[in-house]
């Protein structure tokens, strides 16, 4: 039965309202970024004003945006490359040489993600301090790698499971070693899956805020730490904070929407085949 016009109108209105409520903070942030500080705190809020780029200038000029952005790129790409390099052989072993403990190992890896990160803040902070990796990119790369490793292993594992195991068995009988199998067979065959996994890992590392804020400062801070600085001692400067947030969110948002198709396909690959 086709729903009546009235019910369709009500449904559409509700849906749009829900979407608007959810996206409003981000829209408001975008709008505020183009205001002056005075306009930003005006009550009632200004809806019509002349957009200015002043806040963006302030946010980048005095706060070293480029360094933080560079850190974000280095940390997220570095952590992704490292995580895939470690997870690839692990997923290969789990997928093609399953043993009695394979399932347990997979569950155990995932279970580490159930622990609240703040629960291990102290030991990890002290550890990084003692090995002199506080506020270094290397330290943050290591943490992000380990944070994302379970998910990366899981994703690669599920992609590998979709590859007929006879293909690798044929290679084994033909004298092709594990390293060659991974490079010449698994990588090309699971290419789209590896790409989706890498994309997700980059996004997760880019958005990671807890560790970035807590174990880095001016040297290795990522854009997450950069935003956090604007709510610091000087008090709140809404326009500048908004501009900084826009600058932090924009790159990954653009990146995400460009790769969206691949990402969605990768994430649903095993589920809907």
């Amino acid at each position: 039965m086709k729903p009546s016009l009235a019910s369709r109108v009500v449904l559409a209105t509700l849906a749009w309202a829900a979407a608007l409520i959810m996206v409003f903070p981000i829209l408001w942030m975008l709008v505020t970024a183009f205001k002056t500080e005075g306009q930003a705190i005006a009550i009632p809020p200004l809806l019509i004003f002349t957009p200015k780029l002043r806040s963006f200038f302030d946010a980048t000029q005095n706060a070293g945006y480029l360094l933080f952005a560079l850190n974000s790129v280095i940390v997220s790409v570095g952590a992704t490359v490292l995580a895939i390099a470690i997870a690839f052989p692990a997923a290969y072993a789990l997928a093609f040489f399953p043993g009695k403990r394979t399932e347990f190992t997979l569950m155990w890896m995932l279970s580490t993600k159930m622990l609240p990160a703040v629960g291990v803040l102290m030991p990890i902070y002290l550890f990084l301090k003692n090995v002199h990796l506080l506020d270094t990119r290397l330290g943050l790369v290591a943490i992000d790698t380990l944070m994302n490793l379970p998910i990366v292993v899981w994703m690669l594992y599920s992609f590998f499971k979709d590859i007929p195991h006879e293909i690798l068995e044929a290679a084994r009988v033909d004298g092709v070693g594990p390293r060659q199998q991974m490079i010449h067979l698994l990588l090309p065959l699971a290419g789209p899956g590896v790409a989706s996994t890498a994309l997700l890992s980059v996004i997760l590392a880019w958005n990671e805020a807890f560790w970035s804020i807590n174990v880095t400062a001016s040297h290795a801070g990522t854009l997450a730490a950069y935003i956090a600085r604007f709510s610091a001692p000087e008090g709140l400067f809404w326009a500048k904070l908004s501009a900084a947030s826009v600058l932090a969110v924009a790159p990954i948002l653009v990146f995400g929407s460009l790769t969206q198709r691949r990402l969605v396909r990768g994430l649903t690959f095993g589920a809907v085949k």
Binding site: R172, V173, V176
Partner: peptide
Amino acid sequence: IPPDKRGLAMVFQTYALYPH
């Protein structure tokens, strides 16, 4: 002896060709 050192070749039911 691992499979690659046995000097035997195997042909699978599914052929197991390398698709790429």
